[in-house]
């Protein structure tokens, strides 16, 4: 027996949730592109296409106030953000590469410092993933240990069915709880025929070996080769579902203003610029190397996970065609001859 929901009921679900005061974030058409945005009705839901920007914004917005200050007669008044006021959220229709990313980022946001802004939003969010049925030549989830049908990160997971509608898989307790609120929208079916998932093409790589290779090739001509062309914008990091660097700035006047947390990108030359003027990553290819190393080595060193879900956005929108999938494949090939002496585990997302 499989749990199913019709397309119509899925849209009804959005309407119900919106009516109940929840923030429903899902893919929505805006002009020529699709973006994850809070939906105002079920009619706006446009499932199935990979949105231009990733779903990380549901937890880690582009820019958010973390405190505000005001100078008055009684001196300086600092006001914190009430994280309890964050809305109950449902992230609906996130493709596996987007749905998996928060689970990867949880590690860094709850490590030495607990980022309450991120974590509180995570606590209040139910993720409804969606099996992926269209892949292009930039997709590579299968190379980083995920799959178009991967339920990682999802609480509920939808799979499009051949005759329309979706089957719904309960992945977590949170998903089960959520489902209990809307039983009438779901049905049971004896058998279902899913739309075949889209397997991206690519040469499989051994991420453990890639990591070992990276350990030994911090200095290597490959970085110049692939990244001398890098122009140093933040398009890759800003579209990435897993990049999580941010900058904190104060904005306003001496009288009043706010402290904000904004996305940052390691490709910016300012990212590592010291107050002295010295910049340890003095040329662009070193900055790109950091991006790659962070995704496939440093993050694994620290948290045992790969910081990339293979969505391919950075490939599609890189102004100069830097191709992380191609680089990964190339390093994967070189790494085959590297011996795995440390016995890393296969599944790096696990």
């Amino acid at each position: 027996m499989a749990l199913t929901i019709t397309e119509e009921n899925l849209r009804k679900l959005v309407d119900r949730l919106v009516k109940d005061g929840a923030r429903v974030v899902g893919p929505k058409v805006a002009g020529e592109m699709t973006v994850y945005e809070p939906l105002t009705s079920g009619a706006e839901l446009a499932p199935g296409t990979l949105p231009r920007r990733s779903a990380k914004e549901a937890f880690f917005p582009l820019s958010e106030t973390i405190l505000s200050f005001q100078k008055g007669k009684e001196g300086l008044k600092v006001e914190d953000v009430d994280t309890n006021a964050f809305p109950r959220t449902v992230l609906l229709g996130a493709l596996p590469c987007d749905a998996a990313a928060p689970q990867v980022m949880d590690a860094v946001f709850s490590w030495d410092y607990k980022d309450e802004f991120y974590l509180e939003r995570r606590r209040r969010t139910v993720i409804v993933g969606l099996s992926c049925t269209s892949a292009d030549d930039s997709c590579f989830c299968t190379l980083v240990g995920l799959a178009p049908t991967d339920t990682m990160g999802s609480d509920l997971f939808l799979t499009p069915l051949a005759g329309g509608g979706y089957s719904c898989q309960v992945v977590s307790d949170r998903g089960k709880e959520f489902l209990a609120g809307y039983p009438e929208l779901f049905a049971e079916a004896a058998t279902v025929t899913p739309v075949p998932p889209a397997e991206p093409e690519g040469t499989p790589v051994d991420l453990a070996k890639v990591k070992l290779w990276l350990e030994e090739h911090f200095e290597d001509e490959i970085w110049e080769e692939v990244a001398d062309r890098c122009v140093g914008c933040g398009a890759c990091a800003f579209l990435c579902p897993a990049c999580h660097c941010f900058d904190i700035v104060d904005e306003g006047t001496e009288q009043s203003g706010s402290r904000r947390k904004n996305w940052d990108a390691c490709a910016f030359s300012k990212f590592t610029n010291h107050a002295s003027g010295h910049n340890p990553r003095d040329v662009q290819n070193k900055r790109y190397r950091n991006r790659f190393m962070h995704k496939f080595k440093y993050y694994d060193d620290k948290f045992g996970k790969t910081l990339c879900t293979g969505c391919g956005r950075c490939i599609r929108y890189c102004p100069v065609g830097i191709d992380i999938k191609g680089i990964l494949e190339e390093i994967g090939k070189k790494a085959l001859s590297t011996k795995d002496t440390k016995g890393h585990e296969e599944n790096h997302h696990g």
Binding site: A30, V35, E37, S63
Partner: peptide
């Protein structure tokens, strides 16, 4: 105002 709402 905050970020884009996507609404025209």
């Amino acid at each position: 105002e905050e970020q884009w709402s996507g609404a025209l």
